[in-house]
Measured scan of single mutants.
Amino acid sequence: MKTQEELTEIVRDHFSDMGEAATLYVQVYESSLESLVGGVIFEDGRHYTFVYENEDLVYE
């Protein structure tokens, strides 16, 4: 099982292909040891929320 830090790095790496991230945040109260819930805000103003669970990243 991966730590939240490892899950955060996986998510950060995925979003790095989409541009320069200004902020990546984790909603600790919705996350667990198995999943990471949060969002990313890019330098150009785009904002996505995400759920990373079971090696699957879903974002909108």
Rank of each mutant, 00 (worst) to 15 (best):
E20Y: 12
M18T: 07
Y52F: 08
I10F: 08
E53Y: 10
V51Q: 04
G19A: 05
Y59L: 12
N54W: 06
L36P: 00
G45K: 01
E43M: 11
E30N: 15
G19V: 05
M1R: 06
T23S: 09
S31Y: 11
E20V: 14
E30A: 08
V40W: 02
Q4V: 11
T23Y: 14
E9H: 09
Q4Y: 12
K2A: 06
H47P: 00
Y59G: 03
I10K: 05
S31Q: 12
E30F: 11
G38S: 01
R46G: 03
F42S: 00
A21K: 11
S16F: 08
V28P: 02
L33F: 10
E34R: 07
E20K: 12
D17N: 14
H47E: 06
K2C: 13
Y52H: 02
S31T: 06
F42T: 03
H14W: 14
L33G: 10
M18D: 03
F50K: 00
G45Q: 01
G45M: 03
H47A: 04
E60R: 08
G19F: 09
E55F: 11
E5F: 08
D17M: 15
T8V: 15
E5M: 08
L36I: 12
Y25N: 04
I10N: 03
Q27V: 14
H14G: 04
F15S: 01
E55T: 07
E9S: 11
S31H: 08
Y48L: 06
V26G: 01
A21F: 14
E55S: 13
R12T: 04
E30W: 12
D13Q: 15
Y52W: 07
L24A: 03
V28T: 09
V58M: 09
D13F: 12
L57F: 08
T49L: 12
E55V: 05
I41P: 00
M1D: 06
S32W: 09
V40I: 14
S31P: 14
V28A: 12
I10P: 01
D13E: 14
D13I: 14
V28I: 11
F50D: 00
L57R: 01
E55D: 12
V28L: 12
D44M: 05
A22Q: 10
E5H: 08
E34M: 09
S31F: 08
D17V: 14
T23C: 15
L24K: 01
K2F: 07
G38R: 00
Y29I: 05
D56W: 13
E20P: 11
L24H: 02
E20D: 10
F42L: 07
S32L: 09
S35A: 08
T23W: 13
Y29H: 06
E34W: 06
E6V: 06
H47S: 05
G38P: 01
L7M: 07
L24R: 00
S31K: 07
I41F: 10
R12K: 10
Y29F: 10
E6N: 05
G38H: 02
T23V: 13
V37G: 03
L24P: 02
V28G: 09
Y25T: 06
G39R: 08
E43Y: 07
M1W: 11
M18N: 03
G39I: 14
Q4L: 15
I41M: 07
T49I: 11
H47V: 08
N54E: 04
T8L: 15
V37F: 07
V40R: 00
S16P: 05
L24Y: 08
R12P: 02
Q27S: 14
I10S: 02
K2Q: 07
S16W: 08
Y48I: 07
E6G: 03
Y25P: 03
V28N: 10
E34L: 07
Q27A: 10
T3L: 04
D13M: 14
D56R: 15
